[in-house]
Computed example of a mutant assay.
Amino acid sequence: MRIALNARILQAPRTGIGQYVAELACALSREPDIELSLFHGWGWSEALPPAAMPGYSRLSPLLRQIPGAYQARRWIEQKRFDQRGARSVDLYHEPSLWPLAFDGPTVITLHDLTHLHYPETQPPARLREIERRVAHGVEQAQLILTDSQFIANEARVYFGLPAERFVVAPLGVAARFHPRSAQDIDGVLKAHAVEAGEYFLCVGTLEPRKNLSLALQAHAQLPESLRQRYPLLIVGMAGWQREQLSDELSIALASGHVCLLGYLPDEQLAQLLSGARALIFPSLYEGFGLPVLEAMASGVPVITSRRSAMPEVAGEAGNYIEPWDVDGLREAMLRLIDDSRHWQACREAGLLQAGMFSWERCARETASAYRKVVGG
């Protein structure tokens, strides 16, 4: 089967969907009957592009100020896609919210319905595009892939579609996420002035949906001696409406017990994650929650919200809190500091849970969806 995969998102720094596209493309290349062509917005390639760093954009800052620039870029991309797409592929896979026009079979991946539950977490222009295009994309697709059963159920009800239109293909975990000794990560620990097992970590774009304020409040309530010994490190790019966190984050940073590290390259993040006491992931809503899986695969306990798809990912290994419960998060952090047996049990349970997920499994489920559509 000749598959066109829209990989334009790989031109930007690889956060959730970008990691999905990169890892899925690699795993699909090992499926014997899949011939993958990657569309990167301006042309085609057979290989993944190098990962971009923050600040990269196909649209220059000047061009983004021009009315209709987004629509013009979309028109150009459609023309570029048409030059090869319809004539040379059997199926088009759109891994984001809105597919390009294509006369042949189409599969889309619907990662979540954030725009419905938390429209305030999207820039207005982007929200308008999502609302305008997502329903059309769902209608265009013969099958809809989701990362979790939670999203499949939610989307089925919202769009009024039968269950057979959905295929759940859970995400996987990259090989770089695995347990490491303190000696193995000595360089990155020294770079950030921390000790193995003696810091908490938050990973995710800085935006209201990630609920970072809960982590800041709970960490601030730890005794002074523990805040000094177990600082809170935050990894992630600035997102939409980060200014809502500005005052709270400024106070936390000024305390000296919270460090904002920004976006880190993949290997640095994997090393830093493997040395954490725990990952704190109190998100309000997730279609999967990839950092939860990556932490467990690294042998690191997870504190996460009992909301949306997070329990589906963390299973019995998660330390669950409600996303507004500062006291609950503080107590979960204290227990992982004070109770070494509990910490070890969470570590072992997390490794077992993470073993249930792989990009190979995700690729198998995805390839099976392709075959079903093309064969049908």
Rank of each mutant, 00 (worst) to 15 (best):
A51N: 02
T106G: 04
P119V: 02
V107H: 10
D90E: 03
P54H: 15
Y92E: 03
R133I: 00
Q122P: 00
E129M: 07
P124D: 13
A69K: 00
E139W: 02
A155S: 06
V157R: 14
E164P: 00
V138S: 03
F177V: 06
A125T: 12
E154H: 10
V168K: 01
F102N: 09
E94M: 00
L116M: 07
I108Y: 08
L59E: 02
N153I: 00
L91D: 04
P99S: 09
R58H: 12
H115T: 06
V138Q: 03
R80C: 10
R128E: 12
H93G: 07
N153G: 11
V167W: 04
V167T: 12
S57K: 00
Q71M: 03
R126N: 14
R132V: 01
A86Y: 02
H136F: 03
A72Q: 07
M53C: 13
H115E: 11
T106Y: 00
K79E: 11
R126F: 12
P61N: 14
Y70S: 12
G172Q: 00
Q142L: 01
R58E: 15
P105N: 05
R176Y: 00
R87T: 06
V134Q: 13
L59A: 15
Q71D: 09
E77Q: 15
A72S: 13
S60M: 08
Y118A: 15
P124F: 12
G172P: 01
F159N: 05
A155L: 01
F102V: 02
Q65K: 10
G160L: 11
G85R: 01
P54D: 14
A141M: 04
Q149F: 06
V89N: 08
P61G: 14
P54N: 15
Q71T: 06
F166E: 04
K79N: 10
P119W: 13
A72H: 07
W75F: 13
E154Q: 13
S148I: 09
T106I: 15
Q122R: 10
A135D: 02
Y92I: 01
V168L: 01
I144H: 02
Q65G: 03
A69V: 12
D103S: 15
A155V: 03
A175T: 10
A155P: 08
Q71V: 01
E164F: 00
Q78N: 02
R73Y: 12
R133T: 06
L171V: 01
A174M: 08
E120R: 14
L91S: 03
A175V: 01
Q78V: 00
H93M: 11
L62V: 11
Q149N: 12
R128T: 07
S88R: 11
L171D: 00
E139M: 09
A152P: 04
I130Y: 09
L62N: 06
T146S: 03
V134F: 05
L127N: 09
P123M: 08
Q71A: 15
I144E: 05
V89D: 05
R156N: 00
L110F: 04
H136V: 05
G160N: 11
P105K: 09
L100E: 04
R73L: 13
A69I: 13
P54W: 13
A163C: 09
L127S: 09
Q142H: 10
P95T: 08
D103T: 10
D90Q: 04
G104P: 02
M53K: 15
N153A: 08
I66C: 08
Q140T: 11
Y158F: 15
G160F: 08
R73W: 12
L62I: 14
G172E: 05
L113T: 11
